[in-house]
């Protein structure tokens, strides 16, 4: 149930939509970066392990 605002409702929703997009985008980017970095590190460690065993 969305609240009803006066004549400026469009501005309010625009602000919060923008906030959701920007903050959501920041969260997604950061999470993605962390996941990629972790996977990359794991891959590199496996490669290092293989190189040592050879």
């Amino acid at each position: 149930m969305l609240p009803e605002f006066d004549k400026n409702a469009g501005f309010i929703w625009a602000s919060y939509a923008l906030g959701a997009i920007m903050i959501g985008g920041a969260i997604l980017t950061v999470m993605m970066k962390a996941r990629l970095a972790k996977a990359e590190l794991a891959r590199t460690q496996v490669r290092a392990e293989e190189a040592r065993q050879k």
Partner: peptide, 10 residues
């Protein structure tokens, strides 16, 4: 920061 540390380690 964690991502950066992992990147540097890799």
């Amino acid at each position: 920061m964690r991502a950066e540390i992992w990147q540097r380690r890799a």
